[in-house]
Amino acid sequence: MELVDLHSHTTASDGTYTPSESVQRAKSKGLRAFAITDHDTVAGIQEAVEMGKKCGIEIVPGIEISTVDAGQDIHVLGYYMDYMQPQFLQQLESLRNVRNVRNEMLIHNLQQLKIPITMEEVVKRKKMKEGNIGRPHIAEVLMEKGVVQSVQEAFELYLGKNGKAYANPPRITPEEAIDLIKEAQGVAVLAHPGLYANRELVIRLIHYGLDGIEVFHPDHSAEEAAYFAELATENGLIGTAGSDFHGERNGVIFHGDIGDATTHYDAVDKLRKASIEARTKKLR
Rank of each mutant, 00 (worst) to 15 (best):
R125E: 15
T16W: 01
H192V: 00
K114I: 04
Q24A: 04
I276V: 12
K124M: 10
G131H: 03
S8G: 00
L283K: 07
I117T: 11
H108T: 13
R135H: 08
R96N: 09
H192D: 03
Q72F: 07
G30H: 06
S275T: 09
R171H: 10
E176M: 15
M81A: 02
M105Y: 09
P169D: 01
Q111V: 10
A267Y: 00
A267I: 00
E121T: 08
D219H: 02
V147D: 03
A197W: 11
R249I: 15
A70L: 12
P86L: 05
A12W: 02
V148R: 05
L113H: 12
A278Q: 14
H75V: 04
R171C: 10
I57Y: 05
P218S: 13
L3A: 14
P61Y: 15
K182V: 11
R135C: 11
E153K: 09
E104Q: 14
V68Y: 04
E234D: 11
P170C: 08
L89D: 01
L106H: 03
K124D: 12
S20F: 07
D260N: 10
A48D: 12
I117R: 11
M119I: 13
F216K: 00
I59Q: 07
E248F: 14
Q72H: 06
G146F: 04
K273L: 12
P174A: 12
A197P: 07
G247P: 09
G259V: 03
D211A: 07
C55L: 14
G62N: 10
S20Y: 02
V202E: 08
V4R: 13
E183C: 01
I74K: 07
E200Y: 14
I117P: 06
P169T: 01
N162L: 11
M1I: 02
I258W: 00
E50L: 15
N250P: 11
G52Y: 13
R25W: 00
G78C: 07
I107G: 06
L231S: 08
K129P: 05
V215L: 07
D14M: 09
L210T: 06
I36R: 05
A33I: 05
C55Q: 15
G134Y: 06
R199M: 14
H207Q: 15
K282T: 03
L110K: 01
A191M: 06
G186A: 11
E58H: 15
H137G: 09
H246P: 00
D14N: 11
Q87D: 04
H192E: 01
I172A: 12
G239N: 07
